[in-house]
Structure formats: structure tokens, C-alpha cells
Design a protein around this nucleic acid. Structure first.
Lengths: 190, 190
DNA sequence: CAGGAACGCTAGCGGTGCTAGGATTGCTGT
DNA sequence: ACAGCAATCCTAGCACCGCTAGCGTTCCTG
């Protein structure tokens, strides 16, 4: 019995190692550098081992994305918690969101640009994704006015997402980043 | 002399055929289906011919993106032109933008998600991209208030971009699309 | 009509994600 | 204690990718 327990423990550990390796490699060199061969070398196992843990490369990326949702949620929570007042909370949460996307571009891509339907079909993603969304929602609530809260939250989120992605792909001048964020926050909190 | 002219004409024609084939294939089956082998078969030439026209697959995608910028600009122009008043113009242009992204997802991806730096380094992209941006700018100007016009335009653009991309990747409920658009337009035109 | 250059083809390179099959390991029941 | 079995992991290979070297052919030019 105990040997089986050890086996399962080692197996779980290896699964975590795969996700960690994928995450680190993607952050350091981008997703193009994350190949199954390279991942296998990183965890010091052969390629097919990956497929006994995940259905394919997409599933590995989805697992990284799942971790990302949890991270993003906690970032947003702490940003809102430390804000002095509701209006400042909107600004701080917005800044925290964009900073997250900017500092972990590969993870943000896995979450929102690549791996289209995989994470949303799983079961633990909705939890963390909903946590993040709820945090955005709570942040926006005090300044919602007559608008439907969920719709407003989604739209605000889209604004943040647009700023983050366009900025990172060089479509927007980096210098005015703060000013754009201020405009968005202002338009959504009055 | 005339033979050389014919040669150049045929060559230009073939280049257009490559771009058209890439565009059609991407629209029909997504960019993953656009392989150099398949493109070559489509234009009824061998693979290496592609490389005498374009540096690589990325350059072909960039060419499709360039066409897309021109298309988008004209779409925005006509949307603004047919609007009865400035406030309605904001709504109509916004709707036209998102509709463009939704109807030609592959082209929109080539323009804004993939092919990061290629089109912007070229010389004819800035023209059409600037045309589209200027159209957005002119649309927003009457409702700009005290905000810097360029910054406001960029932020509004980011909002549209965010809505378009999040919607298409299934992150937002399709049903409330119109309502979200209304919220964005409202927040940016008062 | 001969010489030469431009052109487009066949074949192949190194790489990708993924899988079939066998060998090795380690647990289990007698 | 050991034979049999089941799980585990690796080697080898498939079909495909973007891209390129090198050769044949074709067609223009002097």
C-alpha cells in the first residue's frame, strides 16, 4: 500500500515538474521554445512520459494557464485590498492587471490568447477565473451607476485586455501607457 | 522590352495569387491550415517559388495583414460617413470595427495578434493603419472632452480590440455582445 | 544559331507533435 | 525464494512543418 502511495506521490511531483518547466521555459524564451523534446530533457525523462500526464502540448499549456488564473486572482485581490478608497481601487486593480500581463507575457498568452477552449472545459479553471472576475466585479461595483454590473465588468475587463495586448505587441507607444490607463479608469469610474 | 514587361506582370499576378490563396485558406480553415506546401499546391507552383516572392511564411501573413488594414480603414470610413450624428457615429464605427474582427477572424489575427513586428517595419502599412486610426480619431473627437485626443483614441481602440478578441475566443457570453458594446460606447461618448 | 542567364523543379535537411512496440523494472502470490 | 505478471519508461519511427541547395530546362540575347 505504501509503495503505491509513494508512486502516486512521485507521479504528482513529476507532473508539477512538467508544468513548472513549461512555465519557466515559456517565460524565459517564449512558447515557441517550449517543445516536447526540450521539456522532456528538462525533467530528465523521455518524451512519451509527457503524454502519460497530459493529452498533448496544448494540455500542458492549459495547465500553465490554470496556474496563471490563480496568480492573477490573488494579484487583483491584494491590489483592491490595499486601496484607500473605491475610486483608487479601480485604478490600482487596473494597474495590477496590466502589470501582470506585462510581467508574465507568456502566461498571459496561455490564459487568453492561445489554448482557446481547453482551460474552460476543465473544472478547476472556472474557480480561479471566476475569482478574478469577481474581484474585478467588486472593484467596479461602487462606480457602476445604472449599468448592469456583469456587463460593465466584462467591458472594463475587455478594455484592460486590449491595452495589455496592444501594448505588448508594439501597437501602442509605450510612453503613454500610464495616460491610457488613466483615461480608461476615468471613463469607467464616473 | 515587352517580354520583360509581360514577365513582371505575370510575376506580380502570381504574387497576388499567393496572397489571395493564403487569405482564403486562412479564412476558411484558420492559419494552422496555411502551410507552404498547401499554398504552393493552390497556386499550382512548387514550394520554393513562394520564397522568391516572400522571405518566409511570416512575410506572406504580413502581406495578408496589409490588405486587412486597407479593408478595415474603408469599413470604418463608410461607417462614420453614413452616421446621422457624432454620437451615433461612435456607436456605428465601434460596431463596424467589431463586426470586421468577427467576420474575418483570421485576417484580424494576422493584423493584430500574430506577425508582431513585420507589418510595422514595412512602408505601406503605416498608410492604411494610420488611415484607420485617423478615422477612429475623427470619430471620437466630438466627444473627447478634456482628454488628449490621441490617448483617448488609443484607449477606445483598445476597448474595441479587447471586446473583439475576448468575444471570439469564447471568454465572453456571445449573447451580451451588443450590450457590452453599448456600455463601451456610452462610457466613451459622454 | 550558339551562349548564357533566369527560372522553377526535385530532393532533402533539421525540426515539430505524437505513437507503437519492446525491454526493464518491481510488486505479488504460491 | 522465486516464477509470473503488471506497470513503467525508453528507443525508434511516423507524418508533417518551414526552408534551401543544386540541377534541368527554357527562353532571351548577341
Amino acid at each position: 500500500m505504501s509503495t503505491q502511495a509513494r508512486r502516486e506521490r512521485e507521479r504528482a511531483e513529476r507532473e508539477r515538474a512538467i508544468i513548472a518547466a513549461a512555465r519557466d521555459l515559456a517565460l524565459a524564451e517564449g512558447w515557441d521554445a517550449v517543445t516536447t523534446r526540450r521539456l522532456a530533457a528538462e525533467i530528465e525523462y523521455s518524451q512519451p512520459v509527457l503524454y502519460s500526464h497530459f493529452k498533448g502540448k496544448d494540455a500542458i499549456m492549459a495547465a500553465v494557464a490554470v496556474e496563471g488564473f490563480a496568480e492573477l486572482a490573488t494579484v487583483l485581490v491584494s491590489a483592491r485590498a490595499s486601496a484607500p478608497d473605491p475610486r483608487q481601487a479601480v485604478a490600482d486593480v487596473a494597474a495590477a492587471y496590466v502589470a501582470f500581463a506585462q510581467q508574465r507575457p507568456a502566461i498571459y498568452d496561455a490564459m487568453f490568447t492561445l489554448a482557446v477552449d481547453l482551460p474552460f472545459a476543465s473544472q478547476d479553471v472556472p474557480t480561479d477565473l471566476a475569482r478574478g472576475f469577481a474581484e474585478l466585479s467588486d472593484t467596479v461595483r461602487p462606480v457602476a451607476g445604472d449599468d448592469d454590473l456583469e456587463t460593465l465588468t466584462e467591458t472594463f475587463w475587455a478594455g484592460l485586455h486590449g491595452l495589455a495586448t496592444l501594448m505588448r505587441s508594439g501597437r501602442l507607444r509605450r510612453a503613454d501607457h500610464g495616460r491610457r490607463l488613466a483615461v480608461l479608469v476615468d471613463r469607467f469610474s464616473r
